[in-house]
Amino acid sequence: MISDLFSLTVLLGIISSGIRLATPYLFASIGEAFSQRSGVLNLGVEGQMILGAFTAFYVVMNTENLLLGVLAAMGVGALMGLAMGFVSITLQAQQGISGIGFYLFGLGMSNLLFQLLVGTVETVSGFPKVPLPILSDIPVIGKLFFDHNILVYLAFLLVPIASFVLNKTNLGLKIRSVGENPEAADSLGVSVSKVRYFTTIFGGAMSGLSGASLSIALLNVFQLGMTAGQGFIAVALVYFGAWRPWGVLAGALLFSLVNGLQLWIQVLGINIPSEFAVMMPYILTIFVLTLSRSKYGAPSALTKPFEREG
């Protein structure tokens, strides 16, 4: 029944799962926001995510070491970021197309490795819930916000940190200027390619971490194509959030809440075709992006390779 949705338990359930589901979006979008602020559009996030998801899963399956899994996923993502950087910064390839190339590479590679090394559906024991002392005992709110696994906390903590780095540090100043007017930055001795390599590698590592959060924290399983477009939504969230970490947070929460809603619609067996429920976040993506079409905040040099003439 639709009315079931409005009971307190269900609402709280939706919010709680919304917060958990925001984790992969946050990691990937913040990473992508950094690379876009420096002028590199990385459309390969989805590929970095799924390869990161597989790597984390495989490492944890074999070693049962969660930290090692996370680091391995970030390492693989960073390597893909490095490759993306080489293609788009050093070789100055068209960024949109090369990003799609990296997406397909990550997807295919994760499929191949899964078939070769695992083959069947297996589960791992992922990050456990870590209720924060005292805070999690607060009635209602405590369970909602302070009873999650550690990656969830980390993802939300990343938002103020990213905002601080972008706005209050020298590195952030360099990233912003390189994305707006690389010639100006270059004329003041800022190495445009160094900054852009940094952000694409960082973005890749964050995408890898995002994938890990799916396979060893949220779902504790690896399936072919399990990222299901979340990497692309992460890219869209950067636009939605106007390239600002707090904006990205708002977007990520909006989408994950809708995602949580559709999960509960399925759980409760409400009479909406489940395919339609699954479509909801994606439809919302398109809808919101159309509405927030304003160019506000788009880095001027986004997708433009930089080369000093002469």
Partner: peptide, 8 residues
């Protein structure tokens, strides 16, 4: 052509 970042 001025080497300035307009958004800063």
């Amino acid at each position: 052509h001025f080497m300035l970042v307009p958004t800063l």
